[in-house]
């Protein structure tokens, strides 16, 4: 195998687009932990469920192969809307009971959700992998063949980064979210109903996971258990980036996505191990992550 530009560039683009997906899922995970102190082990399971719902919506609008590629947009929108509603409902009924509880209890509840949703997927969609095929021609960039869909995913990731940044920095709701990261009690003493804020943050986080599930549909087949692989990598992203930092989550997601993309070629069996060696190296130097603050451990 030659490690020339023809190999490195497409692999880099694949890594960046993988990083964008990690970012979409990990951003919600990080936000939910930062604001509500809830470690949501089921976060990637919402991603998977979002993917299956997007698949059903896509195939309801057209055939799984050769349909209009733009069908991905309404299919993803259906998945995001469905998962946001599910997120609002779950926060009201289940997650709300977990505020202030110990992490093991939170893991117990959210891991139960992983199993329940996993079985639900099995019941509705069966155990076979599901995928859609768009048949897009590859793009030729700098003489290298690139899957054009990578560019779509990269654009979506950048748009979400900009949107989240704007939301957190420029809106009143975002300011309250950032304040709540530091002190729930003070926010409430200022007369702000935090219950509404928590519900919206949880729904938004789950909606971002569903967005990732819908967007990735034409790239990777949906498979049972894929959520477990992803959640482990998302935790790595959030830890490396620093909990509660959107920019940190983004940078860490791209770093880990690209690392994984090359590692899987060079040493397929050890790709995950390489990622975790990277995580350990970061934590040794900066225990609070690349962009986390030392104050908030």
């Amino acid at each position: 195998m030659e490690f020339g530009f023809d190999f490195v560039f497409p692999q880099l683009m694949a890594g960046i687009s993988r990083g964008m997906l990690l970012f979409l899922v990990a951003a919600g995970l990080s936000l939910i932990f930062g604001v509500m102190n809830i470690l949501n082990f089921a976060h990637a399971t919402f991603w998977l469920l979002g993917g299956y719902i997007a698949y059903s919506a896509f195939t309801a609008f057209g055939p799984p192969s050769g349909a209009n590629p733009l069908l991905v947009i309404p299919a993803t929108a259906v998945a995001v809307a469905a998962l946001m509603l599910l997120g609002f409902g779950l926060e009201r009924v289940l997650i709300r009971r977990m505020y202030g509880r110990e992490v093991p209890e939170q893991l117990l509840l959210t891991f139960a959700l992983v199993l329940i949703i996993g079985d639900l997927i099995k019941l509705v969609w069966g155990v076979e992998d599901r995928s859609v095929f768009l048949g897009l021609p590859p793009a030729v960039i700098f003489g290298a063949f690139i899957n054009i869909y990578y560019l779509v995913i990269i654009a979506v990731g950048l748009a979400v980064l900009a949107g989240l940044y704007w939301f957190l920095q420029r809106t009143r709701f975002g300011r309250i979210v950032r304040a709540a990261v530091h002190s729930r009690e003070m926010v409430e003493a200022l007369g702000i109903r935090i219950a509404t804020i928590y519900m919206v943050v949880f729904g938004l986080g789950v909606g971002l996971a569903a967005l990732a599930g819908g967007v990735v549909l034409p790239l990777t087949p949906l498979a049972l258990g894929a959520d477990i692989d992803l959640i482990v990598q998302c935790f790595a992203v959030v830890v490396v980036g620093g909990f509660g930092s959107v920019i940190g989550t983004f940078v860490a997601a791209i770093l880990i996505g690209v690392t994984y993309s090359f590692a899987i070629f060079l040493w397929p069996d050890g790709a995950l191990a390489i990622i975790f060696l990277f995580v350990i190296a970061v934590l040794v130097v900066r225990p609070w992550g690349l962009f986390g603050t030392e104050l908030r451990t």
Partner: peptide, 12 residues
């Protein structure tokens, strides 16, 4: 709120 500016603290 340590991550918010003086103005943002007031606005909250």
């Amino acid at each position: 709120f340590p991550d918010l500016t003086v103005r943002e603290n007031l606005e909250v």
